[in-house]
Amino acid sequence: MSDILVRIDGKEVEASQGMTVLEAAQSAGISIPTLCHHEKLEPFGGCRLCIVEVQVGDWMKRVVSCVYPVEKNLIVRTRSEMIDKIRKMILELQLAHAPDSPELLDLAQEYGADKDRFDKEASFCIHCGLCVRYCDEVKKKNAVGFVDRGIRKEISFIPEIAAKECWNCKECFPLCPTEALQAAFVLTKSLTSPPLSHEPSSEE
């Protein structure tokens, strides 16, 4: 476990082998915006919002900091004109799906993103995968998962598991940046027959 010295926004930061750039930045109190990152979960690299510029020698490239491991003599820039432009575009595209998400709107203000730039396609889910991964990795219940792919990809609860596990847990609800999850849960609840009870049923 040798310490690696990296330079993030001009600040010398000590990091250990295997840390990601995002973790190194956070440990030094440098904030990088994220949507799909959660400290308890494996890095996902889904939202791309934590994109930064890294430089090794003369070679500069843009990488997603939550999945990029630190290496020797790395120079990281978390803000630049190009990075801000990329983040603004990502936010504008996500706002077309979830125009009223407070978390997205706050970020939009910071990066000057226009929430009406693209036609609304309100699916509300931005596929950050927080609920799916939390249920899998932390709770190990897998009550919610992704279905379908591409533009039709969405989250879906498995009613039988949800009926048993979800009512007393709901730990994934506050993770969701857009509240699409709650909507999916209410939908599952209303489609389940017999209806999910407020109390866990005594038969089990």
């Binding site: 899998d136 897998n142 009550a143 919610v144 998962g145 992704f146 279905v147 379908d148 792919r149 498995i158």
Partner: peptide
């Protein structure tokens, strides 16, 4: 294998 993962693959 969790059913959610099978469902993901089967719909993918």
């Amino acid at each position: 294998v969790p059913l959610a993962r099978i469902q993901h693959i089967a719909t993918f």
